[in-house]
């Protein structure tokens, strides 16, 4: 299902998880400064799946509609990054990052703005850290807010022969004692994933050295 040249082994997955962890930690730190409150973010697991499976995987776990912040990135590896929440969690997140002082109407008004900004912080943190840790540079587009189901977010084209692959990261948020869960998905084509795998191997060699 997943070609060999891009299938990540356990160590590569650990390395990518840690790199994204560094990224979301940076993002948490930035959010803390925005919110002035404790924000914890962690990435417990990562998977590489095809688009169809990603859509199914997310719809198995989330039964409500989804909200996503999307940013495209390009560089040695290119693709599209999505930060996805169940729709019910998005207002919670907005409330959390805006300090909980706002009325319900104001929250709804602010939602789009707040989501785009939060997504930008988190996705930027992740992608910038990845670029940094892998010693490459990436450029990113402006964030865009989307709503829909797993299938629409992953834009599954029934007619397309080759499917893109998805790096699927599960993230836990803890903001102001509120538990918010979400997902980071990075859609990449096979050449980009192959490049990413090579860069991860370089990173592992640097960190583990001959001990590995």
């Amino acid at each position: 299902m997943i070609p060999d040249q891009i299938a990540l082994d356990e160590l590569e997955r650990d390395a990518l998880t840690e790199i994204v962890n560094i990224g979301v930690s940076r993002a948490a730190s930035s959010l803390r400064k925005m919110v002035g409150d404790q924000v914890l973010l962690s990435v417990p697991s990562i998977e590489v799946v095809n688009q169809r499976r990603a859509a199914r995987l997310i719809s198995e776990r989330e039964i409500v509609d989804l909200v996503a912040v999307r940013q495209d990135f390009s560089g040695p590896f290119s693709g599209r990054a999505l930060l996805i929440f169940p729709e019910t969690n998005s207002l919670e997140l907005v409330r959390a990052v805006t300090g909980g002082e706002l009325s319900a109407e104001e929250v709804v008004e602010m939602e789009h703005e707040a989501l785009a900004e939060t997504g930008n912080v988190i996705l930027n943190g992740c992608l910038a850290t990845m670029a940094n840790m892998l010693k490459r540079s990436l450029t990113m587009t402006l964030p865009e807010v989307l709503r829909g189901t797993g299938a629409t977010l992953f834009e599954i084209d029934q007619n397309s022969e080759s499917e893109g692959l998805v790096l699927f990261l599960y993230i836990d948020f803890a903001v102001r004692q509120r538990d918010i869960r979400g997902y980071i998905a990075m859609l990449m084509d096979i050449p980009s994933l192959a490049t990413l795998k090579e860069l991860l191997d370089e990173f592992i060699l640097r960190v583990v050295g001959e001990d590995g």
Binding site: L11, D14, E18, S25, V207
Partner: peptide, 26 residues
């Protein structure tokens, strides 16, 4: 820190620690 860790787990832990040293929180 790594010397008593089982050889099979050492690389994994080195990567995790590297993440911490580079700014990961947990």
């Amino acid at each position: 820190f790594y010397q008593a860790i089982h050889a099979e787990d050492r690389a994994r832990i080195r990567i995790a620690v590297a993440g911490l040293l580079a700014g990961a929180e947990l």
